[in-house]
Amino acid sequence: MTELLAKEAHDEKWGMVIDLDICSGCQACVTACSMENNIPFVGEDEMAYGRGMQWMRIRRYWEGEYPEVTPDYQPMLCQQCGSAPCEPVCPVFATLHSEVEKINLQVYNRCIGTRYCANNCPYHARTFNWFDYEIPAPMNSYLNPDVTVRRRGVMEKCTFCVQRIVKGRQQASAEGREIEDGDITPACAQACPTDAITFGNLSDPESRVSKMVRSDRAYKELENLGTEPRVTYLKGGKSYGG
């Protein structure tokens, strides 16, 4: 048991690849993430003031001029940086790197709400609970019991659906096997209608993500900052292949 645990932990390094060539920008991942992770909705006024709580946002820029104009989509979520700018600035270790999953954790019950991490995140991937957001009963019935419901004053962000990772690992360990590629899927990848999001273990060179990361279309967002993101984008756009 413990042997298995140690081995797995050394073997885990979760990563994501988003293929922008087939990402249609449809926002299903955004909704899926919100429904899985108990993300509260904030209403029109708060959304208008940039206080939406979406952990995943699809950035849309316009390229070109009419009539050759076309939107350029890029789903933006916590990049789970290997060298994360958010981590060293937290005064209480509420955001830190996990030893097992090798992702950035946000420990809600430790967070004191300095919001320093959010300022320091070059991806603006973090959202803050400005208020206690009410989900009127009985709508709170659908809240996921595996994910803490955050109260006001704490920071939150994409967790790579760590609850699913933990569950998957426990399941594999109960069945006495190792986690296989594709066992664990975060909500966004699971929903994505075009399967543009792939999730897997980067430390396994044979996993799908590892193969895709080696693609010549692969790039990482703001790589020059040295953040070592775990999310890789595959370049898309109309210039490719057509």
């Binding site: 979406q54 699809i58 849309r60």
Partner: peptide, 14 residues
């Protein structure tokens, strides 16, 4: 959450 999910083209909500 459908209201709060941005429209893909305009990112408008609600």
């Amino acid at each position: 959450w459908l209201q709060e999910t941005p429209d893909p083209m305009t990112t408008v909500t609600w």
